[in-house]
Design a binder for these strands. Structure first.
Length: 503
RNA sequence: GGGCGGUUAGCUCAGCUGGUAGAGCAGUGGACUUUUAAUCCAUUUGUCGCGGGUUCGACCCCCGCACCGCCUACCA
């Protein structure tokens, strides 16, 4: 199981007639000279040509005689005797080449006719418009830059096999425009978030991914081993405790966008490694974070989709209007009228309801915990429009500050959009003695078999003992946010190389 | 982890209560000097996911396994 197959594949295992034929063509190219030239200088991008010349009419284009030097992969090819068309694709888009004997000579044109879809070419020529008005390049020089040995997926249907799309993302990116677009949106979104924080005076930092004590979230970690130190290490489940150490150190506004690793299930919403944004700001509280989060998500949606109203899987979501803020009891009541203000405050009633709904409860569960369980079972998935849920039980929030009036609750919120948790933030617990007790409770739970419970982190306590200013902190699951912005049903649509079983 | 579905040519897909496979695209040859998934003529390609079983005979029925997808559980 754990053995890595490091031997090269056996010959002729993965080949077919098409590949054989292309190999033969490559062999001829090698014989004729350098089959993999490196001296072609691309000067223009397809999209830039459309932007610059797409609006000009045929006659105007004829007058200006603008030339272009482009390169890209042949996606479509239409050969008609003495003239041919090819559609090539580069990082910006596609443009059509018009190739004929007058432009490059009969010999070169004949050679082109044997090139294949997927081959990478470079071309120079003059821009013109065809009789149907498509901007094209009348090619005067054409070179084959890289021979492609494997046939591309069918030109019209593309790649529909999900497995292959994810395993061979490089092919998916060649033939699936939506896939390219999703990852371009992802890149843009992360760039915007980065600017959002740096513009506000936050310092971007990187904290350990390999930790001797994994902390900051209740989750099962991956375990690894460092040979030279002969030491067990965990891949981090969250950066939280390190970021707060930095707040202790005087970096009063910090953020990190990086990977977390959780050794749990894989699904359309879970990948073992996922990207998390966490940010901390001293002298703020959780209410401030809610305001900040609203602004952030609103701006992000506008910048990425052009509108603060989006559609996710057929559901309309409006980021323009103020996000709702509800306690769990209020949210349950709003979406389930059988639960009232009165009976939601009755632990015995809640216990009975949960038993009826086949949700496991423990005798130690207090009112807050019972409300949380009922909330998760009845209400979470109904929170389509952005909704902040506030005041989580202290039991399930070991790093959050207790509420001054109701110490069994915390100054915490979770943001739900489209029925999913998108953000989690709170006023940080900066009382070292309270935190030490919370860790003790977690460690006891772990000893009793809860493998998601936290470890006791005595260095973190030591840091708090130096004094951490009152601070608010938040984490946002970036992949899920990108799913919303790209209307993706699966997290695999927004992670370039999602985790798969080995082939 | 549990349930359901899928796996047939490089790709997209057909395949009849069981008689060992087809189409389109791609490829190859030919026609065609403004095509748009170009078109027209001809033509090649398969461990039918893997391993067992039933049967005279299995892509098809049965059992097991692998991988994928969807739902579900844990979670972000």
């Amino acid at each position: 199981m754990s053995e890595i197959n490091n031997s090269p594949p056996k010959d002729a295992v993965d080949t077919n007639q098409i590949i054989e034929e292309r190999r033969a063509k490559l062999t001829k190219l090698r014989e004729a000279g350098n089959a993999f030239p490196n001296d072609f200088e691309r000067k223009d991008l397809a999209q830039e040509m459309h932007d610059k010349y797409g609006e000009l009419d045929k006659e105007r284009l004829q007058e200006v005689q603008s030339s272009a030097t482009v390169a890209g992969r042949i996606m479509l090819k239409r050969v008609m005797g003495k003239a041919s068309f090819a559609t090539i694709q580069d990082m910006s888009g596609q443009i059509q080449l018009y190739i004929n004997n007058e432009g490059i000579g009969e010999e070169e044109h004949s050679a082109f006719k044997h090139w294949d879809l997927g081959d990478i070419v470079g071309a120079t020529g003059v821009l013109f418009k065809t009789k149907t008005g498509e901007l094209s390049i009348r090619v005067s020089a054409l070179r084959l830059l890289t021979k492609s040995l494997r046939p591309l997926p069918e030109k019209f249907h593309g790649l529909t096999d999900q497995e292959q799309r994810f395993r061979q993302r490089y092919v998916d990116l060649i033939v699936t425009p939506e896939a390219r677009k999703n990852f371009q949106t992802r890149s843009k979104a992360i760039q915007i978030l980065r600017t959002f924080f740096t513009d506000r005076g936050y310092l971007e930092v990187e904290t350990p991914m390999m930790q001797s004590i994994p902390g900051g979230a209740t989750a099962k970690p991956f375990i690894t081993h460092h040979n030279a130190l002969d030491m067990q290490l965990y891949l981090r489940v969250a950066p939280e405790l390190y970021l707060k150490r930095l707040v202790v150190g005087g970096f009063e506004k910090v953020f990190e966008i990086n990977r977390n690793f959780r050794n749990e299930g894989i699904s359309t919403r879970h990948n073992p490694e996922f990207t998390m944004l966490e940010f901390y700001e001293a002298y703020r509280d959780y209410r401030y974070l809610m305001d900040l989060t609203e602004t952030m998500i609103r701006e992000l949606a506008e910048a990425c989709t052009g509108s603060s109203q989006i559609t996710y899987q057929g559901q309309a979501i409006d980021f323009a209007k103020p996000f709702q803020r509800l306690t769990m009891a209020e949210a349950i009541n709003t979406h389930n009228k059988i639960y009232t203000r009165e009976n939601l405050q009755d632990p015995e009633f809640l216990r009975q309801e949960l038993t009826k709904r086949k949700v496991l409860t423990y005798p130690t569960d207090g009112l807050g915990m019972l409300q949380l369980k009922l909330f998760e079972d009845t209400t979470e998935e109904k929170l389509i429009e952005p909704t902040f849920i506030v005041a989580h039980p202290t039991d399930v929030s070991p790093l959050a500050r207790s509420n001054d009036e109701q110490p069994e609750l915390t100054d915490r919120f979770e943001l739900f959009i489209a029925g999913r948790e998108i953000a989690n933030g709170f006023s940080e617990l900066n009382d070292p003695e309270d935190q030490a007790n919370r860790f003790k409770n977690q460690a006891e739970a772990k000893a009793q078999g809860d493998d998601e419970a936290m470890f006791y982190d005595s260095d973190y306590i030591r840091a708090l003992e130096y004094g951490m200013p009152p601070t608010a902190g938040e984490g946002i699951g970036i992949d899920r946010l990108i799913m919303l912005l790209t209307d993706s049903a699966s997290i695999r649509e927004v992670i370039l190389f999602p985790q798969m079983r080995s082939e």
